[in-house]
């Protein structure tokens, strides 16, 4: 299987504060990689560097072989291949659910409105919100909003999905529906990088789990090993607090 994401010696600083201190990672096609770690460890920043929402200070990020830090990259085109789901959903409040989903295909891929709406219906069905097509986001629950956000990304037909703590802002009873949708995606073979505090999800769905601390990858392994037999003191300490 080919490399979907390759990160070489990635550094990221905010002013004098170095948040990422040399990250190397690879994600293969159809792989689900979960990133865990204490807050402030740089995991969200790492994720945001993968579609250049954060400018990279030094190092390289390759998406399907395209070097994002290179001069000739069309970042807008790359982003159509890399979906992103945010902690706070970031739905467009002035658009209906359907409009949220179809704006990307219509404005970027120049698909007609009719065609975009037609293609949106199976995606809405997939996230279980077919009947909500014409409502505005404000009338949805958090879990529903997040599923619309996932649908909005999927409408661009991405090769990779990035999830930035997708369930952290949800009421506990709404987390399950969102995780179900993510599990379905993973099972369908979507390449996913998931920053999460849901250890159950990481254990069940992760092909690999990365533990980050203070801007470096401390440890990475298959979930059984990382959760069952962590090698680093810091990993053990973190897991003992969250499990």
């Amino acid at each position: 299987m080919s490399e979907m994401i390759t990160v070489n010696n990635l550094h990221k600083s905010f002013g004098k504060n170095e948040v990422l201190k040399g990250i190397d990672m690879k994600v293969k096609e159809q792989e689900v990689v979960c990133v865990i770690g204490p807050s402030g460890s740089g995991k969200s920043t790492l994720l945001r560097c993968l579609n250049l929402l954060e400018e990279v200070t030094s190092g390289d990020v390759f998406i399907e072989g395209d070097n994002l830090t290179g001069k000739n990259v069309n970042i807008n085109e790359v982003r159509t291949r890399v979906g992103m789901v945010f902690q706070h959903f970031n739905l467009f409040p002035h658009m209906t659910v359907m409009e949220n989903i179809t704006i990307g295909p219509m404005k970027i891929k120049k698909v007609s409105k009719e065609q975009a709406r037609k293609e949106a219906i199976p995606i809405l069905r997939k996230v279980g919100l077919e009947e909500k097509a014409d409502v505005y986001p404000e009338s949805l629950s958090g879990g529903q909003k997040q599923r619309v956000a996932i649908a909005r990304s999927l409408a661009m037909n991405p090769k990779i999905m990035l999830f930035d703590e997708p369930t952290s802002a949800l009421d506990p009873e709404l987390v399950g529906d969102v995780l179900e949708v993510m599990k379905d995606l993973g099972k369908e073979g979507m390449t996913m990088v998931v920053v999460t505090h849901e250890m159950g999800f990481a254990r069940e769905m992760g092909d690999r789990v990365i533990f980050m601390d203070e801007g470096v990858i401390m440890e990475e392994d298959i979930p059984e090993n990382l959760f069952g037999n962590p090698q680093h003191e810091r990993t053990r300490e973190f897991l003992s607090k969250v499990l």
Binding site: E77, R79, G83, L91, I103, K107
Partner: peptide
């Protein structure tokens, strides 16, 4: 307008000016 709005627009592949026109400006 919340920064997440433009980030969401950019992350689906809208250009800076499309994001301004369709996402930020109407709000």
């Amino acid at each position: 307008i919340d920064k997440g709005q433009s980030e969401a627009g950019r992350s689906i592949g809208l250009t800076r000016s499309q994001t301004m026109r369709y996402i930020i400006w109407p709000q």
